[in-house]
């Protein structure tokens, strides 16, 4: 932990900053991506490339939520504006990830670009479906092996 001096910028863990902020002892410098213009740019990018996820920090949803509730006065843009753009961004990304679910198969899937919270939203569904598909796949291939006799046809 670096020593803290008045008017000097220091990097501290988020939770410390929140405590200090709560005591009125510091201002939080918002990360560069948490501004209306930047998020807007990301939003436009998302719209333009329907296949790609734009580049956002790993924890962007959580971070923005915390900063908007705890340190709204330190942010450059008004919190309502930020909230609405974040919501738009989130929805468009959700749409994309749901569309991507069509490619779900039993062995693997690649999910680059999604953030932690978005992954967690998908997790229960993906795990369940992949588990089931795996089971189906296994039973298909085992029946396949001994399936020269066509009695097992009805199983698949």
């Amino acid at each position: 932990m670096p020593s803290l001096k008045p008017l000097k910028r220091t990097e501290v863990p988020l939770w410390t900053a929140i405590i200090l902020k709560g005591q009125g002892k510091c201002n939080i410098i918002a990360p560069a991506w948490l501004s209306y213009s930047y998020l807007k740019k990301m939003y436009d990018q998302e719209k333009k490339n329907p296949e790609m996820f734009s580049n956002l920090p790993w924890n962007w949803l959580e971070l923005s939520k915390i900063l908007i509730t705890k340190a709204a006065d330190d942010l450059a843009d008004s919190s309502t504006q930020l909230c609405s753009i974040i919501k738009d961004l989130r929805e468009i990304r959700q749409l994309k990830s749901k569309r991507g679910l069509r490619e779900l198969n039993e062995s693997n899937i690649q999910l680059n670009g999604l953030s932690l919270m978005e992954l967690n939203e998908l997790r229960p569904f993906v795990l369940l479906v992949m588990g089931k598909m795996r089971q189906l796949h296994d039973s298909v291939s085992t029946t396949d092996d001994k399936a020269s006799d066509d009695e097992s046809d009805h199983e698949w």
């Binding site: 008045p6 008017l7 220091t10 501290v12 510091c26």
Partner: peptide, 16 residues
């Protein structure tokens, strides 16, 4: 779910 320890910059308010 908890993850890494995200850091943010702060600016200390001086006690005048």
């Amino acid at each position: 779910m908890i993850s890494h320890n995200p850091s943010v910059s702060t600016q200390t308010i001086p006690q005048q």
